[in-house]
Amino acid sequence: MKKIFILPLLLSSSAMNGAVFNKQILLATTSELTFYEVLLISALFVMCIILLVVTITLQNFVKVLLKPKEQEDSAYTQAMESRTFWQKFWSLKPLSMEKDMMIEHEFDGISELDNPTPPWFMYLFYSSIVFAVVYLFAFHIVGNGQIMTNEYSEEIAIADKAHELYMKKFANSVNENNVKVLTDAKSLEDGSKIYTQNCVACHGDKGQGIVGPNLTDEFWLHGGSTKDIFHTITEGVPEKGMISWKKSLNPIQVQHVVSYISTLQGTKPANPKEPQGDKYVAK
């Protein structure tokens, strides 16, 4: 009889699991739940709680109606009262009552005891439902909460701010006297982005040269060393149309561009501009 009343609770729990699973799928494609979706999940929570209350009430009612006759015996009462604190806490019954707890069916001579679910497990189960309801209202109804998409956006904003502070603090530590070519992927990627945004119009997407000179050959108008290229980008060559980038790019960004330009050497793009300047030989 008890199992019949537990069935609705299990079904409602399955429904809630399905709702949570669908919510996780939904969050993969959208940052917020719609009003009707939140309303549906709320209704499932309420239904789960109602079924839980009804189940507990009916179980207690059935226990009263089907109260075994042995409970009226003084021996049963004495045995129940003689239990220790922990036996009462865990709803354990004395071994002398084991025969009274046998379930009617058996298989190959093996019988099963009708032991109740431990109270600690039920308390944990009830508290998880309460927590789920509070979480739903706190994060999706009353407020937006720290759901994954918002948390990610906030962490990105914090990281960008920290990066900006770092650049302001350490960017000036690089100059044309100590600049070095960087080879790590992150620096080269940053240099490629800066080059694409600012240099492609004059030097071409492959460094082949358009208005400005070819950056892939061995010939340079203003020196081909790392120091020379850094100086040319920073100070510019106004008389030849090369503007100074020191007001637009900090020294670390210029270093990233210089590092990226170094990767263009010897790439031999299609239709390169003719060599200009003097051949640079690394020392």
Rank of each mutant, 00 (worst) to 15 (best):
N17E: 08
A15Q: 01
N115D: 15
Y76Q: 03
F121H: 09
K23I: 06
S12M: 11
G109F: 11
K99M: 08
S12W: 02
F61S: 08
Y76P: 01
V64D: 02
D73V: 01
A43C: 08
P116W: 07
L124R: 02
L11W: 04
H105M: 11
L39T: 09
W120Q: 09
A79G: 13
S82R: 12
H140R: 14
P68D: 01
N22V: 14
P94R: 03
L113Y: 15
T29F: 14
Y123L: 12
P118E: 07
L33M: 13
L52H: 06
I110D: 09
E112S: 11
M47L: 13
Y123V: 10
S74D: 15
M102D: 04
L11K: 02
E70R: 04
L33R: 04
M101F: 13
P94H: 03
M16N: 03
E32H: 06
L65N: 01
M47K: 08
K67N: 03
L95R: 13
T55W: 01
F125L: 09
W86G: 02
A75D: 07
K67E: 00
V142H: 09
F89H: 08
I25H: 11
I50C: 04
K63T: 08
S31M: 02
E72G: 10
F85R: 10
Y76E: 00
K67A: 00
M80K: 10
S13Q: 07
V20R: 05
L58M: 09
